[in-house]
Each structure stands twice: as C-alpha cells, then as structure tokens.
Design a protein around this nucleic acid. Structure first.
Length: 508
RNA sequence: GCGGGCGUAGCUCAAUGGUAGAGCGUCAGCCUUCCAAGCUGAAUGUUGGCGGUUCGAGUCCGCUCGCCCGCUCCA
C-alpha cells in the first residue's frame, strides 16, 4: 500500500491525448459516446500487450500442472456470425432486458423482475401494486399499501399476483411503483438490447438481420469441430483468439474501461469434466501471474470469486468464476475487472450441438469415451489491460522536467529507445542518424535533434521510452555513446557498435 | 434512459452582456558538449453544434452532441 499513487484520471487522460496514446473517436464531429481511437503510441502499446499475450499463451504457454507442455492453437473468427449463434449462446435472450423506469422515484427495474398484486376488481378498474420479485420487504410493502387502498386484508379477499409483463399497456396508469405512493409513474417496458444489430446484404429485412459479436468466445466454440478435425490436437487443449467485440452498454464509463467497442483476448480451454477443477485452478494462477509479469504490482491486482448470485447463466454449476481485478484510480480503493476465468461447463458446446444439429462430441481414445469437453475460459480485456498498464505506468515526479513519466516495462513500451545528437552540428547528427537507422530495423526507435537535450529527455519520459542514446563530441573519437536510463536517470557509456546487442539483451 | 455538474487554442485554465487571453506544449531560428522544459519569434479558436433574446452573446434562453458524478445495467 506504500506506493499508492495519487493522481486523477483527468491527468492520465490529458497525457494520453497530448502524447498520442488515446483520442476520442470521431472527435472533429463531436465524438461518439463509448468509442475511442488509439493514437500512434497507444497502438504500439496495445499491440505489444496483445503480442506478449499471444507469445506467452499460444506460442510458449506455461507448463501444465503436471509439468508437461500444454497445447494452445490460435484462431481469428468473423465478427459477424450466423445469428443462430447468439440464440444458442443465450445472448439474444440474455442481452435483451425489458426495463421500466419510475418517473417519480427515478429508479429503474428489470420489467421481468416485477410482480403486481391487486384486489378482485383490479382486472378492470382498481389499483395494482408492483413489487420486486423475490424481495420480501418490497412485497410486504405492496400488500400493506393494497390493504389500505382496498380497506381489507389478504385473508378475507381474493388477491392475485402476476408478472408485470403479463399486463396490457392500458393497465399501467393504475399501477403503483415499488417505491412510490401514487399510480401511473411507471413507463412502459422498453427493450434494452445490448447487442449491435446490423444487416447482411443490401436488402435490410428482418431475415437479413445479424449482430456484431458481443464476445469473441462463440467464434471459438463454432470452430471447435474444425480445429479438432484439422489440427491433431487432443483434449486437453486450448483455442485462443484476440479481437474486437461490441456491446451497446447502457452507460459507457470510465474512459476506455467500459466502451462500446473493445478488444478481448480469450482462451477456451477444453478438458475432461473430471479434470475441470484442476485446470480451473491452474488457469487462475497462470493468468494472475501473467498480469503481474506485465508490470501490474501484486498490490494493485487481486483475485475475486464471484458470488453465486452474480454467476452468468453458463457458470451456474462447476467451479464458478474468478475475476482478476485491478485497482484503477476510478475504482480505488475497490477493484475493477480485468479478466474473468470462468468454468463454462459444457454449456456452449451442448447448446451449439443442439441448435446446429451437428455432433460436437469429442472421442477420447485413451479413455475410450465420447463426451462434450468442459471449458475453462480465461477471458481478458485487452482494452482494459491497456488502461491498467497506462495507470500503472503513470508516475508523477516533481523532480524531473516533465513532472510525470510513463514507467512502462521495456517489453510493452511503445518506443524502445531514442537516439539524439547532443548538439545538432559538428558531425554528431550524421552519426546519430546512422545509429537510428540501424536500430529501427529491429525496434520502434525515434530520432530527435530538436531543442535542448533536457527537453528531449523530458519528451521521452512522457512517452515512456526506457532508454535514450546520445552521440556527443567524444563519440567521434571513442566510438561510444551515452545511454540514459528513464527510471534511474543514470548514464553509462556503451560502444556504438554494441548498442544493438545492449538493447537486445534488455528486450529479450 | 433519469437526475445533477460541465464544455473557451493540442493540454491546463482566464475573460461585468462590449476588440477572445495566459501558461505549457508544437513549429522556426538562436543557444546548448548530458536534464537548458534556456532565449526570441510564429502558427493555432466559427468559445462543442444549431437556433433564439439583444444594438451587441464565450456570458442569458431553448434544443442537440459530448464529457464527468449518481441511479440503472454490466456473459
């Protein structure tokens, strides 16, 4: 807790704009709520995180729990899939909530969570009282209010309860909301559709309606059979995918934390049901460690198990869900979700088998058993990860010219090194420019000869560039340059023909 | 979607209803032999957008777009 940072998101947002990390999307037209563009440095940063994940999970995944290598293959599926996909996955149903608002109490309710209670004549004329299903206190309040209104009690009257959704719209002016005293304050139920709808083909009819994927996972399940048939993989194994996903969030908030277009890095790990618990623990460990290896300190990362009442429809049974959470400035002292590791059981494959009528069972030769594998899903937010790493890197420092620097790990830093001539004359620019052109063949390296050396260091501090190489007058005789370290501000001398090796060692 | 707050240069912010400014950044020149983000100068705005009131609107009013906070939601 000692290094708890004190800075506001506004400062980070301003730096991200100023230094080309993140811009508001379509800004010259006034922007668009919930959409962001990545600038030159943000693009490099995000790509670096994505590539690190791909390298560490797909190309060189960690050893399995028994010390044996594990196998993960990659995939890149379409953003638009056959709409039946989302019926099978549960998104058409689950991403479509009818909501009612109360004009008086300003609260909002899931319409399918509300019940109404009424007296014998409520069908035609009398008042109905709404309450929240499953909430005893709410129900008691409604019964009490109804008793007062009807001047009778439940024992001697024929009261009936039924779902709000079963009532005709004409009844709504007679309904008293759960938190108010007068009737007619509830709006009609309105559909909140969290999926982006689009149309396939030039004719925009309901038959051609489709959706932009709300998660990348389903593309993996759809291709489970293809991968098994063509890639010589054996359960247990994983399929990984990075890509954009889209959700019409009710309230996009907190910069790129909850945006309507975002990027996910997902693994679906297929295993036998009897081994699901073991793999679940394995992936929780692997994924937490990975985020820490990316520079998020153990202090600001935590694992949190979902309570049973917040589990998604596919995770009701089994090992549940663990979130990897990061303490963002806007959630502190609480944490916000970075990744969810969920035991999805065989829900997805079973549903797709059912809806598509295609056999998705796997034949396990050693076990001599045919089954639908269980799935452990480590589903990480690339956009959220980028934000967490930006937050973690943001380091105020009153002692340096820039007053703040971005302490990126070299592995994710958008600019790996900068090359300067100490002064822009006396043969130094030529030598520095040559060094720059050699280095940029391997890494993103910038050349800067403008203004004073102090300004150039300050610029690179804000961009989070870990090392600056400076050519000075001695270079012309001793063939060495000064390397300045971003974090320690220390300076060392390195032979100019060893700079590439020097960097390669530190960027390995 | 509701309630509250806000919107002025790339960033941070000024400007009684009366000529739109400053600091920083950016760019140019100078200087600078390692923190000098120092010196000089330049560019930059339909004051988020549209409409209204007014002789005159950054300022007042309406609508709209966007941002922030709360509610709600969040596979």
């Amino acid at each position: 807790m000692s290094d708890t940072k004190t800075f506001s998101m506004d400062e980070l947002v301003a730096l991200c704009k100023r230094r080309g990390f993140i811009y508001p999307a379509s800004e010259i037209y006034g922007g668009l709520n919930g959409f962001w563009d990545y600038g030159p440095l943000g693009t490099e940063l995000k790509n670096n995180i994505r590539d690190a994940w791909w390298h560490d999970m797909v190309r060189c995944p960690p050893m399995g729990p028994d010390g044996e290598p594990i196998s993960i293959v990659g995939l890149d599926s379409s953003i638009v899939q056959n709409p039946r996909t989302w019926e099978a996955s549960g998104h058409v149903e689950g991403f479509n909530d009818p909501m009612v608002d109360c004009r008086e109490s300003k609260s909002r309710y899931r319409a399918d969570h509300l019940m109404v209670i009424g007296g014998p004549d409520a069908e035609e004329s009398r008042r109905l009282y709404a309450f929240i299903a499953g909430d005893e206190e709410s129900r008691d309040r409604a019964i009490k209010a109804l008793g007062k209104y009807e001047k009778t009690s439940a024992e001697d009257a024929d009261w009936s309860e039924r779902p709000l959704m079963s009532l005709a719209q004409e009844c709504f002016p007679r309904i008293v909301g759960p938190d108010v005293k007068e009737a007619g304050t509830l709006t009609e139920p309105r559909q909140f559709n969290l999926m982006f709808k689009t149309f396939v083909g030039a004719l925009q009819t309901e038959e051609s309606a489709a959706y932009l994927r709300p998660e990348t996972a389903q593309g993996i399940f759809l291709n489970f059979g293809n991968v098994v048939d063509t890639m010589r993989v054996k359960v247990p194994f994983g399929i990984a995918q990075v890509g954009k996903a889209f959700r019409n969030e009710v309230t996009p908030r907190n910069y790129i934390f909850r945006s309507r277009e975002f990027e996910q890095m997902e693994i679906e790990w297929f295993c036998h049901e009897s081994e699901a618990a073991r793999w679940f623990d394995f992936w929780c460990d692997v994924r937490r460690n990975w985020w820490e290896s990316m520079g998020l300190t153990s202090d600001s990362v935590q694992m949190r198990r979902h309570d049973s009442d917040e589990l998604a429809h596919y995770a009701k049974d089994g090992c549940g869900t663990f979130d990897v959470e990061y303490r963002f400035p806007f959630t502190a002292p609480d944490y916000g979700e970075l990744e969810g590791v969920a035991h999805r059981g065989d829900f997805d494959l079973r549903r797709h088998q059912e809806f598509s009528k295609k056999k998705l069972e796997y034949f396990d030769q050693p076990r001599n058993e045919r089954y639908l594998p269980h799935v452990i899903e480590p589903s990480a937010g690339l956009s959220r990860g980028t934000l967490a790493i930006l937050c973690e890197a943001f380091t105020p420092d009153e002692d340096r010219a820039s007053k703040v620097y971005m302490k990126f790990q070299p592995r994710v830093a958008p600019i790996k090194a900068a090359v300067f001539p100490l002064v822009n004359k006396d043969g130094m620019p030529e030598v520095a420019s040559k060094l720059h052109q050699d280095l940029r063949k391997r890494w993103p390296v910038q050349y800067d000869a403008k203004q004073s050396i102090g300004k150039r260091y300050a610029r690179m501090d804000e961009a989070g560039c870990p090392w600056c190489f400076t050519v000075d007058s001695d270079t012309l005789t001793d063939q060495a340059v000064t390397v300045r370290d971003r974090d320690s501000l220390s300076q060392d001398r390195v032979a100019i023909d060893q700079v590439e090796n020097w960097l390669a060692e530190r960027l390995a």
